[in-house]
Nucleic acid binder design. Structure first.
Lengths: 151, 151
DNA sequence: CCCAAATTCATACTTTGGTATGAAAGGAAT
DNA sequence: ATTCCTTTCATACCAAAGTATGAATTTGGG
């Protein structure tokens, strides 16, 4: 709606390029295989143009999804600690451990399910608690459920 | 990495179109202004191609954003399942302890808040875990939240 | 009043949780 | 190639959780 300038810009570029091509044709038509050159050139140019155009138009879709991001902000307004969220950038493994931890599994059970040693789970859990800024798995469970960190 | 076919397909299409344009040129070059026609045609074709290509390549980003959508939906109204709680037969005090336990508080913190000794809390917690048929406070928290026993 | 249940507290003990530290191996980015 | 991050594991140590048992006090109902 408010992006008419896209079409205008595209039309203008089209016109300019057509004139450019006309000029190229007038200058190089004396040689035969010059045609392929500027056709290929035009193809590349317009492919790039189409790609740029599509990327601009698709970026609008991303912005539409960003509206759903604002719903996240709404949750943040309801009590999500943005600073905590940034600190909570879990690694892939840590998130796996967290999912089981939140289900109430003990370290030994998590180790068994992920085929890892108890030491490894202890390390992961310790790092998770640090990243979540809590001092016990009980608080981690409560916080994770409250902030909807896991499903 | 595993999308080499994109480039291959693009190259093939480019070749085909160049040959097509060559044929158009051979057929319509007798007339002068036919040049603008197939140049415009080529422009449109390659613009569309570029757009399609870009849309295919960019479609991934949109999916990445959608993941954050799942974090959003949270505002579900949560009520207490009285029946689930009655099945556990908690005493008044036990329920008080349970409410704090589910919030992730440690035994010491619960004792402090209820003005009771640590021993008393341990007794209550132990009885709560027995009544809930779980073996750790972590599982108790998970179960209580899943069955909506507390607020 | 008496009984049963609830509440409180303690002591001792075992298990689990959590921290600190170090180290080794593999992957990815510069 | 080197550096950084992740993942893995180990050992040691301290704190917290959980169990078992016993006991004193309170409370509500028959």
């Amino acid at each position: 709606m408010k992006h008419y300038w896209h079409i205008i810009l595209y039309g203008s570029l089209l016109a300019v390029l057509v004139f450019l091509l006309k000029w190229l044709q007038w200058k190089f038509l004396v040689t035969d295989n010059a045609v392929e050159i500027y056709v290929g050139l035009a193809a590349l140019l317009f492919t790039a143009l189409g790609g740029w155009l599509a990327s601009r138009l698709i970026s609008r879709r991303v912005q539409t999804v960003v509206i759903e991001k604002e719903v996240v902000r709404t949750v943040a307004a309801d009590g999500i600690d943005d600073e905590a969220r940034r600190k909570c950038q879990f690694s892939a493994r840590e998130y796996e451990v967290l999912e089981l931890l939140v289900k109430g599994y003990s370290n030994a059970e998590i180790a068994e399910q992920l085929f890892l040693s108890l030491s490894t789970i202890k390390t992961h859990v310790s790092n998770i608690l640090f990243k979540m800024d809590v001092k016990s798995r009980a608080r981690a469970i409560e916080k994770a459920k409250r902030l909807k960190i896991t499903r």
